[in-house]
C-alpha cells in the first residue's frame, strides 16, 4: 500500500507540473501583456515594473522562476493589485469557493443517491418515473440557466429567498441548488441503474434467503456495490463542479475565487493566473486521489490487486 501511495504521489506531482507548464505556455502565447493597455505608461516606469515582475527576462528564465514559485508556493504580488499577494487572494477567496463546492457535492451526492435508490426500489412505479423525469431535466438544463430561473422565480417574483451574495445559510440555497442539480441528476440516474442491476444479483437473493430485513439488504448488501460506478464518475464530476463554481459565483455575486480567476485572465495578471491554476489543479488532483482511495475502500478486490502488485 505504501509503495502504491508513493507511486500515486509522484504521479500527482507530475500531473501538476504538466498542468503548470501548459498554463505557462498558454498564458504567454495569448497576445497582450499586463501593461500594454490604452493608457500609456511612462516607459521608465513600465521597464521598472517589468523588471520587478521579471517580465524582461527570457521565457525559460521566467519559467524557472515560475517553477520556483510553485515549489515554495509563493506567487508574489498580483500585478493589478500590487498591495495584495496571490496567496492572500487565495486565502480570501478559496474558503468561500470551497464552501460552495463542498456543500454542492454533499447535496448532490446524498440526494442523488437517495433519489436513485428509491427510484430503483420502486422500479417502474410513480416515484421512479417522477425521479427520472426530474433527472432528465436536471441533466439537460445548464446551471447558469437554472440559476437565472431560480433567481427570477424564488427571489424576484415570490421573494422567498435572497437573490445573491453569500452572507447566511439562507443565501446558500439558490446557488447550491443551481450548481447541485445537474450532478445530482447524473448521480441519481447512475445509482438507479446500477442499483437495479445489483438487485438482480445472486448475493442479494442469498441475503433474502438469510431472512434479512429489506433495509439491511439495501443498506449493507446492495448500496455499497451499487455505488461503485458513482464513485468512478466522482472525479469528472468534481472537475465539473469546480468550474461550475466560477460561473455560479459570478451570477450570484459570491466573493469566491471565481471572480479573481476570470479577472486575472482578462488582465493577464500572470502571478494570479499561475497561482490559482496551480492551486486548483493541485486541489483537484488531490481530490481524485481521495476518490481512488474511497473506491479501494468500497471494493476490496481493488485493494488486494494493488497489494499483489506491490510484492
Amino acid at each position: 500500500m505504501l509503495k502504491y501511495t508513493l507511486k500515486r504521489f509522484v504521479m500527482m506531482i507530475a500531473t501538476i507540473l504538466i498542468i503548470a507548464t501548459l498554463t505557462f505556455v498558454l498564458m504567454h502565447s495569448i497576445p497582450g501583456s499586463p501593461f500594454n493597455e490604452e493608457r500609456t505608461t511612462n516607459e521608465a516606469i513600465q521597464e521598472n515594473l517589468e523588471r520587478f515582475y521579471k517580465l524582461d527576462q527570457p521565457l525559460p528564465v521566467q519559467y524557472a522562476y515560475y517553477l520556483k514559485s510553485i515549489v515554495t508556493f509563493d506567487f508574489g504580488p498580483s500585478i493589478k493589485k500590487p498591495n495584495e499577494s496571490v496567496n492572500e487572494l487565495l486565502a480570501r477567496g478559496f474558503p468561500i469557493s470551497f464552501e460552495l463546492g463542498m456543500t454542492t457535492i454533499l447535496v448532490a451526492v446524498i440526494s442523488g443517491i437517495l433519489l436513485g435508490t428509491f427510484a430503483a426500489l420502486r422500479h417502474n412505479g410513480v416515484i421512479d418515473y417522477a425521479a427520472m423525469t426530474f433527472a432528465v431535466f436536471g441533466i439537460s438544463i445548464p446551471n447558469f440557466v437554472l440559476a437565472t430561473l431560480l433567481i427570477q422565480k424564488l427571489a424576484v417574483d415570490w421573494n422567498i429567498l435572497p437573490p445573491a451574495t453569500w452572507s447566511s445559510p439562507l443565501h446558500m440555497i439558490l446557488p447550491v441548488a443551481a450548481l447541485a442539480t445537474g450532478p445530482m441528476a447524473i448521480i441519481a440516474r447512475l445509482t438507479r441503474s446500477s442499483m437495479l442491476e445489483v438487485l438482480t444479483q445472486d448475493y442479494i437473493k442469498m441475503a433474502r434467503a438469510k431472512g434479512l430485513s429489506p433495509f439491511r439488504i439495501i443498506a449493507r448488501h446492495a448500496l455499497r456495490n451499487a455505488l461503485m460506478p458513482v464513485v468512478t464518475i466522482m472525479g469528472t464530476m468534481l472537475a465539473g463542479i469546480l468550474t461550475g463554481t466560477f460561473v455560479i459565483e459570478k451570477i450570484f455575486a459570491i466573493p469566491g475565487m471565481g471572480k479573481y480567476f476570470v479577472e486575472s485572465i482578462n488582465n493577464r495578471d500572470y502571478p494570479v493566473i499561475m497561482g490559482t491554476t496551480v492551486f486548483y489543479s493541485s486541489f483537484l488532483v488531490f481530490m481524485l486521489f481521495l476518490v481512488d482511495i474511497v473506491y479501494g475502500f468500497l471494493d476490496p478486490r481493488i485493494k488486494l490487486h494493488k497489494k499483489e502488485g506491490e510484492a
Binding site: Y203, M206, A207, K210, G211, L212, R220, N225, D299
Partner: peptide, 26 residues
C-alpha cells in the same frame, strides 16, 4: 413472518458460488 423462517428453519444454496457471495463483505 417468512423472514423468521428463512435462513433459520429453511436455508438455500445457490448454483453459482462465484456470484452468490457479496464481493464487498468479508
Amino acid at each position: 413472518e417468512l423472514r423468521k423462517i428463512q435462513g433459520v428453519d429453511i436455508s438455500m444454496i445457490f448454483q453459482d458460488p462465484m456470484t452468490a457471495l457479496n464481493p464487498t463483505l468479508t
